[in-house]
Design a protein around this nucleic acid. Structure first.
Lengths: 256, 256
DNA sequence: TCTTGAACCTCCCGCTACGTCAGGTCCTAA
DNA sequence: TTAGGACCTGACGTAGCGGGAGGTTCAAGA
């Protein structure tokens, strides 16, 4: 223990190749660690070849261990620079890393469920049109540009809370409302008509099921107005008719 | 639908800034996509400014959606190059991605438990010496250089199978064996002595609890011989004595 | 002692998916 | 006409090395 640490001590020396072999890293990695000052060979031969001491070996082990835990070389450099008898910064670093890994895991889980959804939509018999899948794909992006991550999470929570049956029921209900609206629009019913106003009320009621605050409602409103053509491609009605219907409903809503 | 795809069609055009704004990416990103040929503006003005069509917009949406699912730009480029009415390659890509995410999640889980172990060892009252923590850290690296990932997984499974109580019991039992061995060594008992031979048998019996095959046993043997000084720093006995004991036990094992 | 092949040295470019200048051109509204 | 914002291309930087070029040094055999 006494002679392990310190300069000028006798003991085994490793060439860079030997150290690489012994520790399972490449020579290039050791070169890199030297370049960034993370691990410098304590000695050099007269001709410039690196000689690593046991002290260096142990430092390398620490570096590699912290690397496998997912820490960056900069973080490792920092925590190994603090005095060795102070584990406070180490504890802090590990705690932070644990939190990061947790967030990462949550993100992965979310992606997995999204991909599973897409895969099932591909295999679903109700998707005969590959182009419709592409539109679904596009909708993911549209959705993400309009909502903040928090809002998306809120909406996802709300959907999970409602359950798949309630969502299917709402879809069916909403399909009926669309048909009703299209009929009124074709018939030229004025937007002030009580029938149309009642339709708006029921329409919004269905939509409100999915919201938790006013914010997401207005965002959806905007998204619909700006992307109705796009969104309506996933629906069983012609895009132009849906665009028209959206404008018609907007008028009716403002006519109150 | 008819006039959406095709060149020379009328329709809205976006400048690169407008497209960036609308889709929530940066101008630099669009430049990058152009550079690598992933998304090129369908038109240019006479002076060279990019003009994006609705077709380009929809392609951008697809690209961004696939990016959020964690696919690389190269993979996206590949799958968007296949004919649009062929979802087979898309299905394959998503399935592969799902598998990758699963592996990633498993890895994260493993790291989390490792970090939790280290954190508890820091907070543990039985770790008054910060240097001992560093040695523990080094051992992670030593462990990983000696065992393949499969072997590590096997050993971890085995430990989980045994449960924490059995492991604690084995530790205590082993501590007794070490004391016994040190006494024999100090007393100069010859390695052929039945008492020592019996000790070796019991010693190996405890060790074998943790192994599933012959492979890991011989690896541990090698690891012990090459790193006994290092390993023994985590043990409550002086390093030199442990190094000596390892050599003594090795002799006894070969003396049969 | 000489030789030769392996090991070592120092640059330097490459990878992902962009961020961020720099220096110059273009567009648009006042 | 002019100002200032938007746009252009080109180039360097990021993290953690991989891999190669071109030159020097080491170690073992003849």
């Amino acid at each position: 223990m006494v002679s392990v640490i310190g300069t000028g001590d006798i003991g085994h020396r490793w060439s860079i190749g030997e150290l690489a072999q012994a520790s399972g890293v490449t020579v290039r990695t050791l070169h890199h660690y030297d370049e960034i000052g993370l691990l410098t060979a304590s000695e050099r031969t007269a001709s410039g070849h690196r000689r690593y001491t046991e002290h260096d070996l142990r430092r390398l082990y620490r570096v590699r261990a912290l690397r496998t835990l997912g820490l960056s070389l900069e973080e490792i450099s920092g925590v190994l620079a603090t005095s060795a008898d102070d584990l406070v910064s180490m504890r802090h670093l590990l705690t932070t890393q644990l939190r990061k890994l947790g967030e990462h895991a949550a993100r992965i889980e979310q992606l997995q469920s999204q991909i599973l959804g897409l895969l099932s939509s591909i295999d679903d018999s109700s998707m005969p049109d590959p182009d419709q899948f592409m539109t679904t794909l596009e909708m993911i992006s549209v959705f993400e540009t309009y909502f903040t991550p928090e809002q998306r999470e809120q909406l996802a929570d709300r959907r999970a809370q409602l359950g798949p049956e309630a969502i299917e029921a709402a879809k069916t209900q909403w399909a009926g409302l669309v048909e009703e609206g299209l009929q009124h629009m074709r018939a030229g019913t004025p937007v002030e008509d009580p029938q149309v106003q009642d339709l708006v009320r029921r329409w919004d009621a269905v939509g409100n099921m999915f919201h938790v605050g006013e914010e997401t409602k207005s965002v959806v409103q905007r998204m619909w107005e700006e992307n109705s053509a796009q969104i309506s491609q996933r629906l069983p009605w012609p895009a132009e008719q849906m665009t028209g219907l959206v404008a018609y409903m907007k008028q009716a809503r403002e006519a109150v």
